[in-house]
Amino acid sequence: MTDRLAGGAGSAAGVEVALPHPGAARAPARTRVLESERLLAAALLAPTVVLLGLFIAYPFVMGIWLALTDTSVGRPGRFVGLENFVRAWTDSIFQAAFRNTFVYTFWATVLKLSLGMWLALLLNRHFRGKRLVRASMLLPFIVPTVLSTFAWRWMFDPTFSVLNWTLYQLGLIGDRWWSLSPTKLPFLSDGTYALACAIVVNTWRGMPFFAITLLAGLQTINPDLHEAAALDGAGGWKRFWYVTWPLLKPVTLVVVVFSVIQTFADFQLIYVLTGGGPANSTHLLATYAYQVGVHSGLLGEGAAISLFMFPVLFAVVWLQLRYLRRLEGA
């Protein structure tokens, strides 16, 4: 027996929906279980929760626990509280790595964003071979980081650098009157140069991700808006600033959040390019944590160093997501 109601919540207007009578006999337990939306949701979510728990939550909790102990390779540790964190904080190599991580992340993100945006605007135009150019753009992103970084390392090689050779052939280094430097450039053998080189390689590798994502964002912008702005007399820059940028801001923020997370926790690039040298001038938190934890066998101290990344990344993500939510709400 059912009541018949016209239109109801969730039904289209004018369609009659059959609802069970309150006094009707209850369905068998097995049917109730099978039809329960809560159980279905739990069942569908369970694999993801298990995977996240195993591969994200467990290592993270384990990392916190390790950081609070003096565990070393092959030796279970004892609880030492925040000693590892204090020890790291007062370590001059850690301080250099901490500073480097911020410098590296800041400049790499700024460069990737500005160059990625510029590239996306170029690729959004119509020109012959557009698809080929767009596809080839992704190459740096597709090639494994270790391989591409090895190639860069050869290009920056202190003895056989093709870049120094090119600069020499162009007369930009050498003893000619227009030469900028009398000697070859110390790409990886000077601390400042080496960090700059690492930023360049990171930018080269990460820029396509920015460009492609921003390009996707650009293509969602209605061309009528640009036409209207042009009719109102807005020039190229004003159209970008008042039309493109506000509409692209949410996508940009998401890309920047991803990039900051990846760059701040970068490991492979520095490990292959410089190994943290010369004299620790290019160590990042991840590479220094690896050196202490894996090479010196001090797993507790290494875990503490890597955990210094967490509050910084958490704050960055929280601030940016908050800003994003505010944008969506506006």
């Binding site: 090689d157 110390p186 990886l188 053998s189 010369p278």
Partner: peptide, 11 residues
């Protein structure tokens, strides 16, 4: 050779 600051064991 001052590039030696960046050399590994093969350079």
């Amino acid at each position: 050779d001052e590039g030696g600051l960046a050399w590994d064991d093969t350079n």
